[in-house]
Design a protein around this nucleic acid. Sequence first.
DNA 1: CGCGCGATTGAGCTATTTCAACCCCTGTGG
DNA 2: CCACAGGGGTTGAAATAGCTCAATCGCGCG
Lengths: 253, 253
Amino acid sequence: MSQRTVISLESIRVACKNCTLSSLCLPMGLAQEDVERLDDIVKRARPLHRGDSLFREGDKFRSLYVVKTGSVKTFAPSQEGGEQVLGFHLPGEIIGLDAIDKDVHACSARVLETSAICEIPFARLEELTANIPSLQHQMYRLLSKEIGQDTDMLLLLGKKNAEERLAAFLLSLSQRLHKRGLSPSDFYLSMSRHEIGNYLGLAVETVSRLFTRFQEDGLMQVDRKHIQLVDLPALEALVKGVGQGRDKQQQPG
Amino acid sequence: MSQRTVISLESIRVACKNCTLSSLCLPMGLAQEDVERLDDIVKRARPLHRGDSLFREGDKFRSLYVVKTGSVKTFAPSQEGGEQVLGFHLPGEIIGLDAIDKDVHACSARVLETSAICEIPFARLEELTANIPSLQHQMYRLLSKEIGQDTDMLLLLGKKNAEERLAAFLLSLSQRLHKRGLSPSDFYLSMSRHEIGNYLGLAVETVSRLFTRFQEDGLMQVDRKHIQLVDLPALEALVKGVGQGRDKQQQPG
DNA sequence: CGCGCGATTGAGCTATTTCAACCCCTGTGG
DNA sequence: CCACAGGGGTTGAAATAGCTCAATCGCGCG
């Protein structure tokens, strides 16, 4: 038993090395030596289970987290017990960047399924980046990328209808899984319809109806949490706004 | 004439120094010497006019921009000539952080009224931050803050109704202007109703009707672009969701 | 002084929400 | 091994917030 545990931890450790690499050092530029320095500060992860918290709103900010396997949702309280789901985080993705500013977490992170998560103490990472210019650059890129993604989401919530939102959501999952070497067209949702709706600014019922409709239209197969995207191109067409968006505004000047 | 020009530029230069200071070095931590080094790389600004572009979508990323006076909107094309307004940027605010990742601007920035804008070549800033840990930290905070703001916006678009959105928008302007020493309750809008609606994910007509209603309800005075917020507390109550939001979801675990 | 665009206002229209009932897994305990 | 409870999911019907269309207004500018 303890033997098994050790092996298991080590395998996580190794995998963790990989995920740190791909998240933080995407386009290379790091010397082997630096990669190891970076890796040294990454804490090995225990497996976490559905419902476990990475951190809660109000917690002091100490670390960034990288999803190795599994998935995590982040959410912030809105009013009166309600919550806004801010994101779903898949393997290779990083969590906690929004807390650097105030040094306090403004949202909570909860594990959606059994997951392995790496922890990166931010203070140590910061020291490291001060000494490795290319790593500093990666950090800037990482933060900037997060802004870009939020921007995409703003566009989604501001301009797209229910159909387009769900299609965009499915495609986003598809692409992100694909990037990690998983099937882009056959996967299991780790989040509930309710959480999807919350994330997309839609009622649960709307999400449910759309799943049904998409299936009827031959775009996908749905069996509970099991999703198969049958017609990727059609979904893409949906998102691009073949059902055109509002606002044809053109600005002078 | 050339005499006047020199004076004018110099005054901008000085003001620019201030705005750089307050944006990048908010909670101090920079030695006087470092502040000067930072200031040395900031390019002095020519006054820009309504309709002028700071950059356009697709442009190579070179610099960040800080609004000294005036205002700027950023926007991205959505589909078919439509655009999504991503933000309005007031004095002291920084523009362009989202472009670091891809080294290309994903959105355009256009000046809404005669404005003075400082330019900070990012490459030079990056060098500087590598040598000044506290400045590096400020940069991280700056980027992180931007993420936090986007998150707030997601919450707004995902969970709030028209009334709450407009109230939140007005209060945001109010607070940001106040932070710069301007009146929090009496100001001029530099953007059109159309742009406000676009930004908030509402139709122009809805914005217009809400302005009228808010005025009828004694929350504010509206005269074209001239806004006077009469009852700040009431507006705050509106945003907080006295008109409660949807979604009472509580998660197990 | 007239043109034109931004803003306002009115009146239906519709996408989406809300409310409500029901179904179907899943897991639990007898 | 089966009955039952409970939560998530689906489906239908009614309600509605906000959009669209359309007309009018009025300021600002040439």
